[in-house]
């Protein structure tokens, strides 16, 4: 698929969502897997925008890539905000508590990391790379 470059702005979430849904469709993911992948990318993209850019007054682009291989669909988000590895964020511990008593943080990263088959992160050439991998169903 083509490479998508969008500004690190919440208005870009829609375009990224559509791109991921299209990639999932081309890769033949079922509806639930496609939804989980779209959610994962959307949550990490939201964090890149809010914490990597808006909060620190940084403007920049996010590059979205999709690669369909025999067994997998991989989506990669690349940005030049300060390094942040989502895997280092502690899992929420109070998921069973009533809402009014909960500390509502970290849910997006939690959903992202739980929702995909593999998640990877690397920081290369001053660039964050968030890598999402889903297995494709066996082709008939």
């Amino acid at each position: 698929m083509h490479v998508l470059t969008v500004p690190a702005d919440l208005d870009s979430l829609d375009a990224v969502g559509k791109y991921v849904v299209e990639a999932a469709s081309q890769a033949g993911l079922d509806r639930k897997a496609a939804y989980r992948l779209r959610l994962a990318v959307d949550e990490i993209m939201t964090n890149i925008i809010n914490y990597g850019h808006t909060e620190v007054g940084l403007t920049g682009d996010v590059i979205v890539r999709a690669a369909i291989e025999a067994d997998t669909l991989t989506i990669i988000l690349e940005d030049r905000a300060r390094p942040f590895d989502p895997r280092e964020r502690p899992e929420p511990e109070d998921l069973d508590r009533p809402l009014e008593e909960r500390n509502i943080g970290g849910l997006g990263v939690y959903l992202a990391l739980k929702g995909v088959d593999h998640f990877n992160y690397e920081y290369v050439d001053q660039m964050n790379r968030n890598i999402f991998v889903m297995y494709r169903p066996l082709q008939a």
Partner: peptide, 19 residues
Amino acid sequence: YMASAGLRSLAFAKQKMGA
């Protein structure tokens, strides 16, 4: 479709309206 931002709005509702 609902992202975690929707969930946070619900938590906000509970906190704003009372348990």
